[in-house]
Design a protein around this nucleic acid. Structure first.
Lengths: 260, 260
DNA sequence: GATCATAGTCGTCTCACTGACGATAAACAT
DNA sequence: ATGTTTATCGTCAGTGAGACGACTATGATC
């Protein structure tokens, strides 16, 4: 077989799917949209859509993100290559996750989907997308525990296509990445307190962390947090110092996730 | 725009490219093949090829690996999904790396390439592929330092397409992954000594490690290494105990890569 | 207004682990 | 016999994390 023979390549559709995560009310939540047409009509799915001929994968993901959530998505910085990696999206973090291309993953045709991971602060309004499809935030625990041999009720809660696995992979990526990077700040507003950042870690990992050790760790890591100058009392209790994300992206040594 | 409209999707070609790494003579090397046709005729490139209609991405990568290197590639275990992750390939480790889909990355048509990373022990014969293309192992340092504004000689050494970036991403993945996983054993034969494993780390990271601390670390991590029962003197010096890779895949705490 | 609840911040102690490095062991080369 | 090479065991000091005590500053409640 000769590689790159244009007449030989089978027809593929290429899409981007989005795992958009945020932390709301102490729970890690993912954005889901309700499907308006078969297959999986009425079921929830991850937002996504086709890659257009003139855009790269990151641009397609940013465009879909803007269309589905209204999240302002700045263009991926240099865009000189299709390489993965984080690109700024006006507050939200966007990076390529993985690609899913099982022949049977879409019953209608051969679809290869390049999944992207988005980490966003809790949005003021979880508005639906411009194309009138309804959207909602759902706790990832609810979305994922519906897997396995389950009664009919849970059947309806299951995500369409292979989106449950994509979501699981995205959640795992987020869980491991906040260990060794400053990515947890992507879940926070521009200014936040140490306690708010700690609650992000607790929600993403599903564990309780010691406030004192956490405070020592994050304030003691150079470049992780920079004081923003004010204090806030929005959490109740003693006023807390406000911080902004520092320039450092890598945490060394990493934040340790408690066992079990 | 209606998602999943079959008539609306532009024609994409989907390929897999392979970053095949091994350690030979104290250097991290990558497998490259010489291109026999334009564009980039005569230049070196990463092995790869089209995904066939009836195979998933992992299967396509394993098939290309077998075709280009003769490496026996077992079928990815359950293959119930197109999800990324390691699958056994008869000694060599195979995992999805990232996907590259810039509109201009191939001058002939829109090609989306799902790159995979393969870690293999030093092969007895670096044989060329079945399709008569010449193949060779090249130190990744040579392949990557050819980047940047360089004289004409280095121009010829540069990899075709965006393969230099794909290779760089694969090398970085390997470098970081041996920190917190037992993946370095994928570069070793079934039975190996602590010193051989240390030389793998030294070659991949490009640093010198203290033999005594390294020995303490790897033998003290439960499940990392299991004694194979014999000794060998193939490295000269005092005979060394032979080990096999243990069941543990995650190293906790991780092996620390020295600064700079 | 005193008390309580809540949350933030600073310290202390101990243990695990790492990096630096000394010392010994078992092979081969000369 | 002696030196060289590589493997393996031990020691010691410093860093950082987990456990947890103590104190502080706010709002809520009696």
């Amino acid at each position: 077989m000769s590689p790159y023979d244009p007449s030989a390549h089978p027809p593929f559709a290429v899409t981007v799917d989005l795992v958009v995560l945020t932390v709301r009310q102490h729970a890690l939540c993912a954005l889901t949209v309700r499907r308006g047409e078969p297959p999986f009509q009425g079921r929830w799915a991850l937002p996504g859509g086709f890659v257009r001929p003139d855009e790269n994968l990151a641009e397609a993901a940013a465009r879909e993100l803007a269309e589905e959530t209204g999240l302002r998505a700045q263009q991926p910085a240099p865009a000189t290559s299709g390489a993965p990696g984080p690109y700024g999206t006006g507050g939200a973090h966007l990076e390529q996750l993985a690609t899913y291309g099982d022949p049977q993953r879409d019953p209608r045709m051969r679809v290869v989907s390049v999944a992207h991971l988005v980490l966003a602060p809790d949005l003021p309004a979880p508005r639906a997308g411009g194309d009138a499809r309804s959207a909602r935030w759902a706790p990832v625990d609810d979305l994922l525990q519906a897997e396995g041999g389950a009664p009919e009720e849970e059947q309806r809660a299951q995500l369409a296509f292979d989106h449950a696995r994509i979501l699981a992979d995205g959640v795992e990526r987020a869980r491991s990445k906040i260990e060794y990077s400053s990515l947890a700040t992507a879940f926070c507003p521009p200014e936040f307190t140490v306690g708010e950042l700690r609650r992000v870690y607790e929600a993403v990992w599903g564990v309780a962390l010691d406030p004192r050790n956490f405070h020592r760790k994050v304030t003691g890591t150079p470049g992780f947090l920079v004081p923003a100058g004010g204090t806030t009392t929005r959490q109740g209790g003693r006023p807390a110092q406000l911080f902004r994300a520092g320039g450092a992206t890598l945490l060394n040594p990493p934040m340790l996730r408690p066992e079990l």
